[in-house]
Protein backbone atom coordinates (compact mmCIF):
# COMPACT_ATOMS: atom_id res chain seq x y z
CA UNK A 1 0.00 0.00 0.00
CA UNK A 2 3.13 2.19 0.00
CA UNK A 3 4.64 4.91 2.15
CA UNK A 4 5.63 8.43 1.06
CA UNK A 5 8.02 11.01 2.50
CA UNK A 6 8.39 14.59 1.32
CA UNK A 7 10.39 17.55 2.55
CA UNK A 8 10.58 21.22 1.65
CA UNK A 9 12.92 23.57 3.48
CA UNK A 10 16.54 24.32 4.17
CA UNK A 11 19.01 21.74 2.82
CA UNK A 12 19.17 18.58 4.89
CA UNK A 13 21.32 15.47 4.60
CA UNK A 14 19.29 12.83 2.80
CA UNK A 15 20.47 10.16 5.24
CA UNK A 16 18.74 12.02 8.07
CA UNK A 17 15.38 11.65 6.36
CA UNK A 18 15.70 8.24 4.71
CA UNK A 19 17.69 6.27 7.30
CA UNK A 20 18.42 7.89 10.64
CA UNK A 21 15.11 8.28 12.55
CA UNK A 22 13.75 5.20 14.30
CA UNK A 23 10.76 5.11 11.94
CA UNK A 24 12.53 6.49 8.87
CA UNK A 25 11.09 5.86 5.42
CA UNK A 26 13.38 2.92 4.80
CA UNK A 27 12.61 1.41 8.19
CA UNK A 28 8.96 1.53 7.12
CA UNK A 29 9.88 -0.99 4.42
CA UNK A 30 9.42 -3.78 6.93
CA UNK A 31 8.09 -1.98 10.00
CA UNK A 32 5.53 0.67 9.13
CA UNK A 33 3.70 1.62 12.32
CA UNK A 34 0.48 2.81 10.73
CA UNK A 35 0.12 0.19 8.00
CA UNK A 36 0.04 -3.57 8.51
CA UNK A 37 1.96 -4.32 5.36
CA UNK A 38 5.47 -4.81 3.99
CA UNK A 39 6.62 -2.31 1.36
CA UNK A 40 9.04 -4.39 -0.68
CA UNK A 41 8.20 -3.54 -4.29
CA UNK A 42 10.64 -0.72 -4.97
CA UNK A 43 12.05 2.60 -3.87
CA UNK A 44 12.15 5.87 -5.75
CA UNK A 45 12.93 9.50 -5.09
CA UNK A 46 13.22 12.92 -6.66
CA UNK A 47 15.48 15.27 -4.71
CA UNK A 48 16.16 18.91 -5.52
CA UNK A 49 19.56 20.31 -4.50
CA UNK A 50 20.07 24.06 -4.91
CA UNK A 51 23.85 23.58 -5.08
CA UNK A 52 23.68 21.10 -7.93
CA UNK A 53 23.97 21.62 -11.69
CA UNK A 54 20.54 22.71 -13.05
CA UNK A 55 19.07 22.98 -9.54
CA UNK A 56 15.48 23.05 -10.79
CA UNK A 57 15.87 19.48 -12.08
CA UNK A 58 15.87 16.80 -9.37
CA UNK A 59 18.18 13.91 -8.78
CA UNK A 60 16.15 10.85 -9.56
CA UNK A 61 16.69 7.35 -8.30
CA UNK A 62 14.42 4.36 -8.82
CA UNK A 63 15.02 0.76 -8.03
CA UNK A 64 12.94 -2.38 -7.69
CA UNK A 65 15.40 -3.69 -5.13
CA UNK A 66 14.60 -3.55 -1.43
CA UNK A 67 16.34 -0.27 -0.73
CA UNK A 68 17.35 -1.27 2.79
CA UNK A 69 20.05 -3.41 1.15
CA UNK A 70 21.06 -0.82 -1.47
CA UNK A 71 24.61 0.35 -0.77
CA UNK A 72 24.53 2.82 -3.66
CA UNK A 73 21.55 4.61 -2.15
CA UNK A 74 23.14 4.62 1.29
CA UNK A 75 26.30 6.15 -0.17
CA UNK A 76 24.32 8.81 -2.06
CA UNK A 77 22.27 9.60 1.05
CA UNK A 78 25.42 10.39 3.00
CA UNK A 79 26.43 13.00 0.38
CA UNK A 80 23.27 14.67 -0.91
CA UNK A 81 21.72 17.64 0.86
CA UNK A 82 18.49 18.44 -0.95
CA UNK A 83 16.17 21.33 -0.11
CA UNK A 84 13.20 19.34 -1.41
CA UNK A 85 12.50 15.62 -1.53
CA UNK A 86 9.75 13.30 -2.69
CA UNK A 87 10.51 9.66 -1.84
CA UNK A 88 8.38 6.54 -1.93
CA UNK A 89 8.54 2.87 -1.04
CA UNK A 90 6.09 0.66 -2.87
CA UNK A 91 3.88 -1.89 -1.16
CA UNK A 92 1.76 -4.23 -3.24
CA UNK A 93 -0.52 -7.22 -2.80
CA UNK A 94 1.38 -10.40 -1.99
CA UNK A 95 0.71 -12.32 -5.19
CA UNK A 96 2.23 -12.94 -8.61
CA UNK A 97 -0.27 -10.82 -10.57
CA UNK A 98 1.51 -7.64 -9.50
CA UNK A 99 4.06 -6.20 -11.88
CA UNK A 100 7.31 -5.35 -10.15
CA UNK A 101 9.36 -3.24 -12.52
CA UNK A 102 11.07 0.11 -12.64
CA UNK A 103 8.27 1.67 -14.69
CA UNK A 104 5.92 1.19 -11.74
CA UNK A 105 8.21 2.74 -9.13
CA UNK A 106 7.21 6.19 -7.86
CA UNK A 107 7.58 9.14 -7.96
CA UNK A 108 6.35 9.79 -11.47
CA UNK A 109 7.65 12.74 -13.44
CA UNK A 110 7.35 13.22 -17.19
CA UNK A 111 10.22 14.81 -19.14
CA UNK A 112 10.07 18.58 -19.06
CA UNK A 113 7.38 18.68 -16.36
CA UNK A 114 8.68 20.09 -13.04
CA UNK A 115 5.99 18.38 -10.99
CA UNK A 116 6.61 14.90 -9.55
CA UNK A 117 4.03 12.75 -7.78
CA UNK A 118 3.89 9.77 -5.43
CA UNK A 119 0.75 7.85 -4.45
CA UNK A 120 -0.26 5.87 -1.37
CA UNK A 121 -3.35 3.76 -1.97
CA UNK A 122 -5.03 2.06 -4.88
CA UNK A 123 -8.08 2.43 -7.07
CA UNK A 124 -10.42 -0.56 -6.99
CA UNK A 125 -10.91 -2.35 -10.34
CA UNK A 126 -8.60 0.11 -12.04
CA UNK A 127 -7.75 -2.21 -14.91
CA UNK A 128 -11.37 -2.22 -16.03
CA UNK A 129 -11.70 1.58 -16.10
CA UNK A 130 -8.32 2.90 -17.18
CA UNK A 131 -9.00 3.16 -20.89
CA UNK A 132 -12.01 5.37 -20.19
CA UNK A 133 -9.50 7.87 -18.84
CA UNK A 134 -7.66 8.20 -22.15
CA UNK A 135 -9.77 11.13 -23.44
CA UNK A 136 -8.70 13.17 -20.42
CA UNK A 137 -4.95 12.63 -20.85
CA UNK A 138 -3.16 14.92 -23.27
CA UNK A 139 -1.57 12.88 -26.10
CA UNK A 140 1.84 14.33 -25.31
CA UNK A 141 1.56 12.70 -21.85
CA UNK A 142 -0.31 9.55 -22.83
CA UNK A 143 2.72 8.40 -24.80
CA UNK A 144 4.87 8.77 -21.66
CA UNK A 145 2.81 6.29 -19.64
CA UNK A 146 5.04 3.25 -19.39
CA UNK A 147 3.85 1.39 -16.33
CA UNK A 148 0.71 -0.42 -15.28
CA UNK A 149 -0.19 1.46 -12.12
CA UNK A 150 -3.25 3.57 -11.35
CA UNK A 151 -0.78 6.05 -9.85
CA UNK A 152 0.87 6.95 -13.15
CA UNK A 153 -2.57 7.60 -14.67
CA UNK A 154 -3.49 9.85 -11.74
CA UNK A 155 -0.30 11.77 -12.43
CA UNK A 156 -1.01 11.95 -16.17
CA UNK A 157 -4.57 13.18 -15.53
CA UNK A 158 -3.30 15.87 -13.16
CA UNK A 159 -0.55 17.27 -15.37
CA UNK A 160 -3.00 17.15 -18.29
CA UNK A 161 -5.34 19.37 -16.28
CA UNK A 162 -2.66 22.02 -15.71
CA UNK A 163 -2.89 24.96 -18.08
CA UNK A 164 0.88 25.04 -18.40
CA UNK A 165 2.45 21.87 -16.95
CA UNK A 166 5.94 22.90 -18.07
CA UNK A 167 6.36 25.71 -15.55
CA UNK A 168 6.33 25.97 -11.76
CA UNK A 169 2.66 26.24 -10.87
CA UNK A 170 1.18 27.85 -7.78
CA UNK A 171 -0.12 25.35 -5.20
CA UNK A 172 -3.71 26.46 -5.91
CA UNK A 173 -3.23 25.65 -9.60
CA UNK A 174 -1.83 22.24 -8.72
CA UNK A 175 -4.72 21.57 -6.34
CA UNK A 176 -7.25 22.62 -8.99
CA UNK A 177 -5.67 20.15 -11.42
CA UNK A 178 -5.71 17.37 -8.80
CA UNK A 179 -9.36 18.11 -8.05
CA UNK A 180 -10.17 17.94 -11.76
CA UNK A 181 -8.32 14.61 -12.06
CA UNK A 182 -10.13 13.11 -9.07
CA UNK A 183 -13.49 14.30 -10.42
CA UNK A 184 -12.78 12.49 -13.70
CA UNK A 185 -11.89 9.31 -11.80
CA UNK A 186 -15.07 9.59 -9.71
CA UNK A 187 -17.17 9.95 -12.84
CA UNK A 188 -15.53 6.97 -14.55
CA UNK A 189 -15.94 4.85 -11.40
CA UNK A 190 -19.61 5.80 -11.28
CA UNK A 191 -20.07 4.84 -14.92
CA UNK A 192 -18.59 1.41 -14.14
CA UNK A 193 -20.60 0.96 -10.94
CA UNK A 194 -17.48 0.89 -8.77
CA UNK A 195 -18.11 2.08 -5.23
CA UNK A 196 -15.45 0.19 -3.29
CA UNK A 197 -13.28 2.22 -0.93
CA UNK A 198 -10.21 3.44 -2.84
CA UNK A 199 -7.45 5.38 -1.15
CA UNK A 200 -5.83 8.23 -3.03
CA UNK A 201 -3.25 9.89 -0.82
CA UNK A 202 -1.01 11.89 -3.14
CA UNK A 203 1.99 14.15 -2.71
CA UNK A 204 3.08 16.45 -5.52
CA UNK A 205 6.32 18.41 -5.38
CA UNK A 206 8.26 20.47 -7.92
CA UNK A 207 11.10 21.50 -5.63
CA UNK A 208 9.45 24.85 -4.90
CA UNK A 209 5.91 24.06 -3.78
CA UNK A 210 4.29 20.97 -2.31
CA UNK A 211 0.69 19.74 -2.33
CA UNK A 212 -0.30 16.76 -0.17
CA UNK A 213 -3.74 15.22 -0.57
CA UNK A 214 -5.44 12.88 1.91
CA UNK A 215 -8.45 11.50 0.08
CA UNK A 216 -10.43 8.30 -0.35
CA UNK A 217 -13.17 7.55 -2.86
CA UNK A 218 -16.19 5.91 -1.19
CA UNK A 219 -14.42 5.63 2.14
CA UNK A 220 -15.80 2.88 4.37
CA UNK A 221 -17.45 0.87 1.62
CA UNK A 222 -16.03 -2.59 1.19
CA UNK A 223 -17.25 -6.15 1.09
CA UNK A 224 -14.35 -7.18 3.27
CA UNK A 225 -14.81 -5.45 6.60
CA UNK A 226 -11.33 -6.14 7.92
CA UNK A 227 -9.47 -5.08 4.77
CA UNK A 228 -6.63 -2.70 5.55
CA UNK A 229 -7.12 0.75 4.14
CA UNK A 230 -10.86 0.49 3.78
CA UNK A 231 -12.15 0.82 7.32
CA UNK A 232 -9.37 3.20 8.28
CA UNK A 233 -8.59 6.32 6.31
CA UNK A 234 -4.98 6.01 5.18
CA UNK A 235 -2.79 8.23 7.31
CA UNK A 236 -0.85 11.35 6.34
CA UNK A 237 1.09 13.50 8.82
CA UNK A 238 3.20 16.63 8.78
CA UNK A 239 5.53 18.59 10.98
CA UNK A 240 7.30 21.90 10.62
CA UNK A 241 10.08 23.89 12.22
CA UNK A 242 13.71 24.55 11.38
CA UNK A 243 17.09 22.86 11.61
CA UNK A 244 15.88 19.29 11.18
CA UNK A 245 18.26 16.94 12.93
CA UNK A 246 19.10 15.05 16.09
CA UNK A 247 18.30 17.31 19.03
CA UNK A 248 18.18 16.04 22.63
CA UNK A 249 18.51 12.50 21.28
CA UNK A 250 15.41 12.93 19.13
CA UNK A 251 15.09 13.47 15.36
CA UNK A 252 12.90 16.53 14.95
CA UNK A 253 12.41 20.01 13.62
CA UNK A 254 13.05 22.66 16.27
CA UNK A 255 12.89 26.42 16.70
CA UNK A 256 9.14 26.78 17.16
CA UNK A 257 6.37 27.16 14.61
CA UNK A 258 6.91 30.92 14.42
CA UNK A 259 10.47 30.44 13.10
CA UNK A 260 9.67 27.49 10.89
CA UNK A 261 11.23 27.34 7.43
CA UNK A 262 10.92 23.63 6.74
CA UNK A 263 8.07 21.16 6.39
CA UNK A 264 8.02 17.35 6.37
CA UNK A 265 4.92 15.57 5.07
CA UNK A 266 4.78 11.78 5.23
CA UNK A 267 2.42 8.83 5.31
CA UNK A 268 3.39 8.46 8.94
CA UNK A 269 5.75 10.21 11.38
CA UNK A 270 9.46 9.39 11.10
CA UNK A 271 9.76 8.85 14.83
CA UNK A 272 7.82 6.56 17.13
CA UNK A 273 7.22 9.55 19.37
CA UNK A 274 4.94 11.61 17.15
CA UNK A 275 4.16 14.35 19.66
CA UNK A 276 5.40 17.06 17.29
CA UNK A 277 3.51 15.74 14.27
CA UNK A 278 -0.03 16.61 13.14
CA UNK A 279 -2.43 14.71 10.89
CA UNK A 280 -3.52 16.14 7.57
CA UNK A 281 -7.35 16.08 7.89
CA UNK A 282 -9.31 13.56 5.86
CA UNK A 283 -10.72 14.79 2.51
CA UNK A 284 -8.22 17.66 2.60
CA UNK A 285 -5.09 19.00 0.99
CA UNK A 286 -2.09 20.58 2.66
CA UNK A 287 -0.57 23.29 0.47
CA UNK A 288 2.98 24.43 1.20
CA UNK A 289 4.36 27.28 -0.86
CA UNK A 290 7.82 28.77 -1.03
CA UNK A 291 8.21 32.52 -1.14
CA UNK A 292 11.94 33.08 -1.11
CA UNK A 293 13.16 31.70 2.22
CA UNK A 294 9.62 31.76 3.59
CA UNK A 295 7.17 28.86 3.64
CA UNK A 296 3.41 29.19 4.00
CA UNK A 297 1.04 26.31 4.74
CA UNK A 298 -2.71 26.03 4.36
CA UNK A 299 -5.33 23.33 4.68
CA UNK A 300 -7.88 23.21 1.86
CA UNK A 301 -11.10 21.21 1.87
CA UNK A 302 -11.13 18.69 -0.95
CA UNK A 303 -14.64 18.09 -2.20
CA UNK A 304 -14.82 16.06 -5.36
Amino acid sequence: MCRILSYLGTPVLLDHLLYAPDSSLLNQTIHARMLAMLNLAGFGMAAWDPASHEPHAPFRYRTTQVALFDRNLKALASKLQPSALLAHIRGVAYNSTVQINEQNVHPFRFDGVPLAMAHNGDLADFRSVRFDLVPYVKPEFARHIQGSTDSEWLYALTVSALEDPYRINAPEEILAAITRALAIVREVRRAHGIDRSSSTNLIFCDGVNLVAVRFTFDFGKSGQAQMQGTNEFLSMWYSFGSDYGLHDNEWKLTGGAARADSVIVASEPLTSDFATWIEVPEYSALLVRSDGARRMAEIHALEV
Binding site: T10, G256, A257, R259, A260, A293
Partner: peptide, 8 residues
Protein backbone atom coordinates in the same frame (compact mmCIF):
# COMPACT_ATOMS: atom_id res chain seq x y z
CA UNK B 1 1.84 30.42 14.50
CA UNK B 2 3.55 29.04 11.41
CA UNK B 3 1.91 31.46 9.01
CA UNK B 4 1.98 34.55 11.18
CA UNK B 5 5.38 34.09 12.71
CA UNK B 6 7.70 34.88 9.86
CA UNK B 7 8.25 31.39 8.51
CA UNK B 8 11.86 31.56 7.74
Amino acid sequence: RFNLGGLG
